[in-house]
């Protein structure tokens, strides 16, 4: 039951982009077309699930028992960046095709604050290793949903006649705002279901 709650909550209610403002740089940066957005989403889905699991593992086995939680920030960022490096090297050997399609997005993920954010949120919520991974996965799903929907809208926006001053980023941000209002509607869902 808790897993379903985390999954639904992560995708619809506490959506990383629309409710928590995480991962906005790539959200705006690589959402020019649906294809790129999908590639980025796959990479994020992969890394975020692993990062949340691994950081939770480190937190519960090393940092917490030895009273080192003040090293949280340093440890997490190092784990995430080496994980990204590892995933990139591994993919290059194991699946060159996948590497070619995800390759350019992988290094970008290190500075995607959503990955670190999801890891920090999991630890602060006190989730165990399994639930942390689920939380990371749910967050990544929500982020992917947001960026793919947004990329679709942006492709249309290219063809629309937008006032000169609003062209590009400003209209993209206003669109995101309107999507966020739509996602606010899901807030009642939780109270209704659980």
């Amino acid at each position: 039951m808790e897993i379903i709650a985390i999954l639904l909550g992560g995708v619809l209610i506490n959506n990383l982009v629309f409710a928590q403002f995480l991962g906005l740089c790539p959200f705006v940066g690589v959402s020019k077309n649906v294809e790129m957005a999908t590639g980025m989403s796959a990479a994020v889905l992969f890394v975020m699930t692993m990062a949340a699991g691994v950081t939770a593992l480190l937190h519960s086995l090393v940092l917490d028992p030895y009273g080192l939680t003040y090293l949280e920030t340093v440890t997490f960022i190092l784990v995430i960046s080496s994980l990204v490096q590892f995933v990139e090297t591994f993919l290059r050997k194991a699946s060159p095709v996948l590497h070619r399609s995800l390759g350019i997005y992988l290094p970008l993920i290190t500075t995607n604050c959503a990955v670190m954010g999801a890891a920090l949120i999991s630890v602060r919520q006190g989730y165990g290793v399994g639930l942390s991974a689920v939380n990371g996965f749910a967050g990544a799903l929500g982020w992917s949903l947001a960026i793919i929907l947004f990329a679709g809208i942006r492709e249309r926006l290219e063809l629309a006649s937008v006032p000169e001053a609003l062209k590009g980023i400003p209209v993209a941000l206003v669109t995101t705002g309107l999507m966020a209002i739509a996602f606010l509607g899901f807030q009642g869902l939780f109270r209704f279901l659980f």
Binding site: I169, P170, V171, L173, V174, T176, G177, L178, A180, L184
Partner: peptide, 9 residues
């Protein structure tokens, strides 16, 4: 949250 996006835009 929506206000942040719209204001920034």
């Amino acid at each position: 949250p929506p206000g942040a996006f719209i204001t920034m835009g």
